[in-house]
Design a protein around this nucleic acid. Sequence first.
DNA 1: GACTGGCACTCGCTACAGTCGAGTGCCAGA
DNA 2: TCTGGCACTCGACTGTAGCGAGTGCCAGTC
Lengths: 340, 340
Amino acid sequence: MGLDDRKLAVLRAIVEDYVATQEPVGSKALVERHQLGVSPATVRNDMAVLEEEGYIRQPHTSAGRVPTDRGYRLFVDRLSRVKPLSPAERRAIERFLVGAVDLDDVVHRTVRLLAQLTRQVAVVQYPSLARSSVRHLELVPISTTRLMLVMIADTGRVEQRLVELPAPIPADDVMDLRRLVNDKLGGSRLSETPPLVQALVEESAPHLRGAMTTLSTVLLETLVERHEERIALAGTANLTRGGLLDFQGSLRPILEALEEEVVLLKLIGEAEPSTTRVLIGDENEFDNLRAASVVSTGYGPGATIVGGLGVLGPTRMDYPGTIATVRAVARYVGELLAQN
Amino acid sequence: MGLDDRKLAVLRAIVEDYVATQEPVGSKALVERHQLGVSPATVRNDMAVLEEEGYIRQPHTSAGRVPTDRGYRLFVDRLSRVKPLSPAERRAIERFLVGAVDLDDVVHRTVRLLAQLTRQVAVVQYPSLARSSVRHLELVPISTTRLMLVMIADTGRVEQRLVELPAPIPADDVMDLRRLVNDKLGGSRLSETPPLVQALVEESAPHLRGAMTTLSTVLLETLVERHEERIALAGTANLTRGGLLDFQGSLRPILEALEEEVVLLKLIGEAEPSTTRVLIGDENEFDNLRAASVVSTGYGPGATIVGGLGVLGPTRMDYPGTIATVRAVARYVGELLAQN
DNA sequence: GACTGGCACTCGCTACAGTCGAGTGCCAGA
DNA sequence: TCTGGCACTCGACTGTAGCGAGTGCCAGTC
């Protein structure tokens, strides 16, 4: 039952060769390319065991072996060491990220960088509002019954919503409202605002009550409760790399999944501190993505995490390299955010 | 040389059949499916002429005919009538667009709607800042040397930039700055602001001069000059419709083009009033898109145009239907914007 | 002069048979 | 426990043949 060291070495060799060549690998080629110190026949025996255990499989009887999802999993967990980045990559990251003026800018540069370095589809979640604090709330009168609510978060995110007031409101009252919401909510985490917003309505002066009520509704509904996550995507053209071999011939399901914000958030938005999450093939809960793997991690200034980022590619991907890149980029982005 | 009515009818029939079946159409099938009133042999003669003139071609000697880009062009220009929308489509549009709370919301709903109705890739440009007026400029202090500049345009767009000041600035001065920029720039079109911004610096009091200078730089550089266009995309999964027949087997170039904001802007951002632009195949200036067609138009409240929208699909597309849908959606969006 | 029916021809598609070779599983022997 | 040898499997490739959709051309008809 147990896999001895040599069997593991064989598995590692199979994964590495298959990732490199994209072709089923046979016993003879294996001993030629790796110093396993044994003959093809021995390797064949090991392969038979590995296949029985579900780590590799044969596409057809007279072909070489291909890793299964389970095989990749074992490889990632026990057989691979994270590749250090090349100096060139390191430089690319730095060059790409300095000069970003803006949160939008940072996110866009990051996602393109990730796509370029990993040659896969990159996904970056904007800093989550739920994990941000309110830095400032601004109310700009659009008309007598309309306000533009602009929220600036400490992560640099800026969100705006139109507020339709139940009745016209004088300019002085707008100023009062602005002062009130800033006094009460400024500095607090968005996830903790609901009771504060509630209190805000109850404590506000009668003539402000109506406006404050709708304002609070907008605040709660649109900013806090849901839908407030944003996501940037890049590198979809990389899906066509490797011809039609990856993704079992159809990009359809993948492209569909990438259009669903909810799916993407699930993939990269559930990061835990200092972990890199790797989802391989059918470990994925979305059927559309059973032919793909996702490498993701969280990022944020210092030790806190404000969002997730990652890449999606074929199960046949260079895990060590990808993991290293994703981590490095996340770290750089975190440093960048910390400077603000 | 001239094409008589029957030859045009033959071309129309070929286009319609090919769009519907995606298979080269032969003379016999043609007379069976359309009431042309002549025999296959006659149709063949007409086809020979059409081929000589470059409107159709044979994929291989013993196959039926397929329209060329030039053939589609003739079809669109002279042979097709814009299909009226079905009531169901009309309803879908209305249902989709009511309830949008936000410019972001409007744009996102629109792009998804377009993708869904046309079953193609949809592109929507946010209202162009160059065609917007300043409604309000807000300056929010982030630290003593940093301001967040928030600009709200009359089209509903909200843009923000971080302004790094050369020296710390007291709160009172921020208020002065805010008043100054709003007085000077409020209501003016963004394309006309540069001289105003210039004047602003020259006229400002000495103690504000430094801050105003950097502020004006940011204003000019990032908001007016360039890069300020935003774009939303949806329906890329539709590219896989029709198997690998469309786009000559490779989605690669298309996906690459769709990642380039500049390209997309060129495609849909140069709308002229009340025109629907159709670019067919190699009429497109981007090599990557020679296998695709683009249908686009401008939209805006009333008669003015503030942005463009459109769809991209295979040259083999239902032009009449697509044109009708694009126009209808643009009109609805315009009405929606006019309400604000 | 325009249209039509007929006919020979082209050529991609499919099916089928045969060959090749990479790769396997198994077994006897070291 | 490993190794060399051997028979076997089966996909990939090649060549051949038949089919049929579709064409171009031509002589005949209205």
